[in-house]
Design a protein around this nucleic acid. Structure first.
Length: 676
RNA sequence: GCCACUGUGGCUCAGGGGUAGAGCGACGCCUUGGUAAGGCGUAGGCCGCGAGUUCAAUUCUCGCCAGUGGCUCCA
């Protein structure tokens, strides 16, 4: 062995250690951190390497801990290989394609016949066997010619090799037992490192994500360094399932979707409508404070309006087809006009039908232009809970979060160029008030800017600079993390999006604020300036909730149905011990109802335990228990949703505390204290 | 839109070529009970819709509709 001294710098401590050339990364890390170093790979001179990597030169080395983000990705990636090994063991004809780690887990796509749940179990078992065999995972280097020979039966891998050749990335191979896969690595050292895994579901995908390509079987899974982490995640997922707004929505009777009404069309049942109504009242009062004007506009508009706005020509695919009037319909029928003729005529503007509005802006623009405007009128802020209809792809539609008819808490601000900054600030302030009132603090802000391809965008360069700076400054003023994303602007202006993270870790784009130079131009909007000349206003579109439907869906999951009292469809439930207490209960119900409190009662002859159990399905913040004790002393006993109990409360005290909690829109249930 | 899977009383689900079952809920009676299921009984279903195969279809096949998980798209 050569005895060349080599320097390795431990990045964490900046200490310098000397080793004999030919030592592995693993040995170095063990020397520095001890045997239980918890590393799955090493970062050597900034490049991720296997622990078995042989060091022959001076370098900087740092262990990659399994529970770091990088370490988890390596673990997941290795587990994807393990999955592929098990699948090819059981189904020799299956051709592995790609299997990357993703956030929360990994997947692998195979060209093979469809499989079901039972096969999935079989694959899991085989993976477990392979883990217990504790196979070494080793890296092998081959020339491209050799690689092509190894994968000669797998056209997908061959394609990848070709592309890698082109990119000059070089290719390597990883082997565990009799299984080899094309991969750059790094990987964990042994299959036993992967034992805490679970396959989660089977789905389908297309080669390279293109539906013109072959369809592949995709298997998803997750893996963790320890059994407890895996168990925690499984528990978290099953809890998240219980929070699913589609499940809770049914249980609490918040909304209904009926296939005879139509896909993606929400029927707000009374209890859900209550939540929506409270939210709308809340936002209306904030709009009033910010000197918005509320308007109402119809659900349809003439096709020409949307030809002028550009919505009809550019987004026809995602709209409901236009409506046409009786006379025209009759004329076309008499002419023996086919559907495609009709479509062509519509497209060419031969007749003027109506469109279900895909956006509210054209209507609001017409309100703006309904009379001459001067600079003194600006900013003009027009708000509407405006319902719009869009033809979402059928496979995309889901619960309340992806629908075809939805109501935006929309507004359009018409302002002067120099007012943009202030207006944006106002918009963001509004969003912040709303989110913080609802306790939704896990969100991030995305500022969408233009990229270098100027041909994609309308409006003047200087105007864009101004708008982008205003967006940036407004986002900064919020005091939350924000990212600037070039290329994410709309063609008509930069935008600020609010992305909320739910309990499952999924992200939902809710609120949005967008600057628009396009529509004022298309509709030739103007105002008289102080200089006596006509100027063009700028528009800002903004919707803090996005849509009432999606927002309520996300809120249901956010609160797991346990809404704060001011929002809860049932604020107080009343359960009596026996028939003797019904009269007292009814009086109390009337009193609360008269004060605007939403009450549900159970005066039936069921036992108190049963009544509580049944009422709990409505998730009322407070359940009042009324028996002899309470009736005789003009008292109540309160049982909270958190199961905390308070007895012997005077009715007047309860009412004043309850009303205070509702009026202040408190998030916590104050009357029964905090859960332990 | 594409792929796979699913569709049985209000809800959750079992069953399966000979026209249907459970639990919860609803309703009625008994019970008058103190904090997550008291007892007994009754009603409720064109087994998603339409065709085909069959002596016979809720069950098998095809088409459609809808839901679920993905892919793709999202002004």
């Amino acid at each position: 062995m050569k005895t060349v001294g080599l320097v390795s710098v431990n990045l964490e401590t900046k200490e310098v250690h000397q080793y004999v050339s030919g030592i592995t990364a693993s040995e170095v890390i063990t020397d520095i951190h001890g045997k239980k170093h918890g590393c799955v790979a090493a970062l050597i001179d900034g490049t991720e390497r296997d622990l078995s990597y042989v060091i022959t030169n001076d370098c900087e080395i740092k262990g990659i801990k399994v529970d770091s983000d990088e370490g988890m990705y390596i673990l997941r990636h290795s587990c994807a290989h393990l999955l592929a090994q098990a699948v090819t063991d059981i189904f020799p004809e299956a051709k592995p394609t790609i299997g990357p780690p993703v956030e929360g887990g990994f997947y692998y796509d195979f060209a093979m016949d469809n499989i079901g749940e039972e096969e999935l179990k079989e694959i899991e078992k085989q993976m477990q066997r392979l883990c217990r065999e504790n196979l070494q995972i080793e890296r092998l280097e081959f020339s491209d010619v050799e690689l092509k020979n190894i994968f000669k039966d797998n056209p997908y891998k061959l394609q990848i090799i070709e592309e890698k050749l082109e990119a000059g990335d070089g290719s390597s191979l990883y082997r565990q037992g009799n299984f080899v896969d094309l991969c750059l690595g790094p990987h964990v050292p042994k299959t036993s490192n992967l034992i805490h895994f679970k396959l989660t579901n089977i789905s389908s995908a297309y080669w390279k994500g293109d539906q013109n390509n072959e369809k592949l079987v995709r298997i998803y899974g997750m893996v963790y360094p320890t059994k407890n982490q895996l168990k925690d995640r499984i528990r978290q997922l099953s809890e998240a399932k219980l929070r699913d707004h589609r499940v809770i929505g049914k249980q609490m009777e918040l909304f209904h979707i009926d296939e005879t009404v139509g896909q993606g069309l929400i029927l707000w049942t009374p209890r859900g409508a209550t939540i929506r109504n409270e939210l709308q009242r809340f936002i209306s009062s904030e709009l009033h404070k910010q000197r918005y004007k509320q308007v109402y506009t119809p659900h349809i508009g003439k096709l020409d309006l949307y030809r002028a706005s550009g919505h009809f020509p550019y987004y026809q695919e995602s709209q409901y087809p236009p409506l046409i009037n009786h006379d025209e319909m009759k004329k076309f029928v008499d002419e023996g006009c086919s559907c495609s003729d009709l479509a062509n005529k519509m497209h060419e503007g031969d007749f003027n039908g109506y469109l279900l509005k895909p956006m509210n802006c054209p209507h609001h623009i017409k309100i703006y232009s309904s009379k001459p405007r001067s600079y003194r009128d600006l900013p003009l802020r027009l708000a509407e809970f405006g319902t719009v209809y869009r033809w979402e792809q059928s496979g995309e539609i889901s619960g309340m979060t992806r629908v075809r008819g939805f109501t935006q808490d929309d507004a359009h601000l018409f302002c002067r160029e120099d007012q943009i900054g202030n207006e944006l600030l106002g918009c963001l302030r509004l969003v912040k008030i709303i989110f913080s009132t609802l306790g939704m603090n896990n969100y991030r802000v995305r500022v969408g800017l233009r990229d270098s391809d100027s041909s994609k965008y309308v409006g003047l360069e200087e105007a864009w600079d101004n708008a982008e700076n205003s967006c940036r400054n407004a986002a900064k003023s919020l005091g939350v993390d924000f990212s600037e994303e070039p290329g994410e602007a709309a063609f008509y202006g930069p935008k600020i999006d609010f992305v909320v993270k739910d309990v499952l870790g999924r992200e939902w784009q809710l609120g949005t604020v967008q600057v628009d130079y396009n529509l004022p131009q298309r509709f030739n909007l103007n105002y008289a300036g102080a200089d006596g000349k006509m100027h063009r206003p700028v528009m800002i579109h903004r919707a803090p909730f996005g849509s009432m439907e999606r927002f309520c869906g996300v809120l249901i999951e956010h609160f797991a149905g346990k809404f704060p009292t001011w929002l809860s469809p049932t604020q107080v439930a009343i359960a009596t011990i026996s028939e003797k207490h019904t009269e007292y209960g009814k009086k109390l119900e009337q009193k609360l109802h008269a004060l605007g409190v939403r009450v549900d009662c159970d005066f039936s002859d069921a036992t108190i335990g049963k009544k509580i159990k049944n009422l709990r399905k409505l998730k009322p913040p407070y359940t009042l228990i009324l028996g002899d004790e309470e009736v005789n002393n003009s008292q109540i006993s309160i049982r909270g949703l958190n199961n905390i109990q308070r007895n012997g409360i005077k009715i007047e005290q309860f009412i004043s505390e309850l009303l205070e909690e509702i009026n202040l829109k408190k998030i916590e249930y104050n009357l029964t204290g905090k859960e332990n």
